[in-house]
Simulated scan of single mutants.
Amino acid sequence: MFINETKLNVRYAETDKMGIVHHSKYYVWFEVARDEFISKLNITYKEIEDMGIMMPLIETHCKYLEGAKYGDEIIIKTSIEQLTGVKVVFKYEVFRASDDKILAKGSTVQAFVSSNEFKIINIKRKYPELWSKINII
């Protein structure tokens, strides 16, 4: 299984009055990590969209275990948990680099839809070249 590691530093603007990262920022981090993960498969979101495919989020989840703080270096480990012709489930684990403590676990589910009709498509059948690039689990 391919796991990508994305490194980020917590910025002051991402923290709340309590001095910890606001819960909404984890989803921004997931998006950054997901984009980097896909680029490591030798394709970009832009190339996927240029093929006429969109990948809207249809479900998200995050369990917060310990708060990240301003100045922390974090590592987001991203992998594909499930892949079918019509959807992909990404898994995320957020760690603090200094002590390897897990801070959060999450997932996102994205469907494959046509950009012109916004209808679900099966990329395994319709786009076998894309399927072969992302079918790494």
Rank of each mutant, 00 (worst) to 15 (best):
H23S: 04
K105C: 13
F90A: 02
W29P: 00
A104E: 01
N116Y: 13
K101Q: 12
M55K: 14
Y45P: 07
I120A: 08
I102Y: 09
D35H: 15
H61G: 15
Y27S: 06
W29M: 01
T108I: 10
D99W: 06
I43K: 01
K77A: 05
K63Q: 12
A111Y: 06
E129N: 03
D50Q: 15
I123F: 11
S114F: 05
I74N: 06
V32Y: 05
N116V: 08
K63G: 02
S98A: 07
A111T: 14
Y12P: 07
S115A: 10
N42E: 13
V88E: 08
V32T: 03
I43N: 01
F95E: 00
E59Q: 07
K25L: 03
I102H: 07
R96G: 02
T44F: 09
K7W: 04
V89P: 04
T6Y: 02
G71A: 14
L103N: 08
I137Q: 11
G71F: 15
G19K: 04
N122T: 03
M51E: 08
G71S: 10
S24V: 09
E59A: 14
I3P: 13
L130D: 12
T6K: 01
E47C: 04
W29C: 01
L41I: 06
K119S: 13
S24K: 03
K46C: 03
N4M: 12
Y26A: 03
E47Q: 12
V10I: 02
A33S: 05
I53T: 15
H23E: 15
E66N: 09
T84D: 11
E129Y: 02
D35T: 12
E66F: 04
I134L: 06
G85H: 00
Y70P: 01
K101A: 08
T78N: 13
I20A: 08
Y27G: 04
S115H: 09
K133N: 06
I120T: 06
M51V: 13
F118W: 12
